[in-house]
Simulated assay, not measured.
Amino acid sequence: MKSVVMSALENDYRVIGIRRGWAGLLHYNLDEHSTHDYYVKDLSLHDVHRIDRTGGTFLHTSRTNPQRVKPQDVPDFLKNSAYGKAIDDKGTMDYTDYIMKVLSHLGIDILVTIGGDDTLSYSVRLHKEGFPVVAIPKTMDNDVFGTDYCIGFSTAITRSVDFITNMRTSVGSHERIGVVELFGRNAGETSLIAGYLAYVDRVLIPEVPFNMERLAGYIMEDKRNNPSNYAILTISEGAIMEAGSIIESGEEDAYGHRKLGGIGEVVAEEIKRLTGQGIMYQQLGYLMRSGAPDSLDRMVAMSFGHLAIQLIQRNDFGKLTALHGGKYTTVPVEMVLSGKKVVDVKSFYDISTYKPFIKDFLGVPMFLS
């Protein structure tokens, strides 16, 4: 965001920030000026000059999908309006016509959108509606299709490796088995890379269902072979046991996702039951994505931001900034909907031992993705 704003202002563009992303546009009331003050902010150098020193976004974020708004999430002023189009028999509405109206009202000519595949999927919709969009991939899961790298991934891995390394103090002192659950819905790259770099004993990812009995046997062997008599494994929140199912809770959000989490605790209890060993279970969750960005994420974020403004200057819209083979490039924004980015199991994982395994490093991408 900092490089987008700075580069845009240097080139005589006016920059407007929308608070809470798509929610800000959906909840902007054309007849109520107070919503303008709340959701719309002109951005200056003063607003952004220190934001790269911490994580997060001062504009805040949301899980809003304007093309799939549940009845309970429709703003009061839009209920029974002509803007909504019913898309199912449950009252789910598409308010894209209203989003386009708000963009026109605000005099916004171009949108720079930053987020994961869910956020960017609506960027694709606006692009198809003819609105100029430039998209930037940002998700610690690193699973946006069309780019090798997404902003946030390196910081999340760095945090995870640090936590795992520190956790060895307690797990080793008490001679236990440590189970560390990491974010990762459909792609296991966070568990794979964090486990690989932290030298954990076993790594579980969503792409490969695991056998609980075999895992327990392996982890006990790892513990016995460790002079300090302990072992550690990482597990993605989206991992599943053989013949099992993904562990979810709560209602679906605007993008059809229920809350993931808890498989690590289930695995910890099963290991304890099968082996009789003491367990230390840690769900890192949001700690992975909190705090200041590392140097690699600063580099990529700055470069993507400047690239986005260069695309705007060329009137080259409908593009996603991307990294391919270590080089900055762009792809059509529709790419984010054309597939699912997952771990290349054949190249980077041993499905029989549940370990990272790179068969040949020649030509391998930097992030094993």
Rank of each mutant, 00 (worst) to 15 (best):
S303E: 13
I219W: 10
D42E: 13
L368P: 11
I151S: 01
D141A: 07
K85V: 06
Y13W: 00
M6E: 14
I246D: 02
Y255D: 09
R20I: 13
G264K: 07
R159Q: 15
E237L: 13
T155A: 05
N29Y: 07
V179A: 15
D47Q: 10
V124F: 08
L192P: 00
D294C: 11
E270Y: 02
A198Q: 00
L78T: 12
G115C: 09
S121M: 01
L25W: 09
I235V: 15
K128S: 13
L45F: 07
F361Q: 11
G285N: 08
H324L: 03
S245A: 13
G244Q: 14
L362V: 02
T96K: 11
V171G: 14
G107F: 00
Y255C: 14
S81D: 07
S236N: 08
G325S: 09
A187N: 12
V345I: 07
K128Q: 14
V48G: 09
T57M: 10
H174T: 08
V345R: 05
I136Q: 00
I205A: 02
I193W: 02
S7R: 02
D222H: 04
D294H: 04
I246S: 13
L45V: 14
M335Q: 07
G116H: 03
D118Q: 04
H127A: 06
V171K: 10
K101M: 10
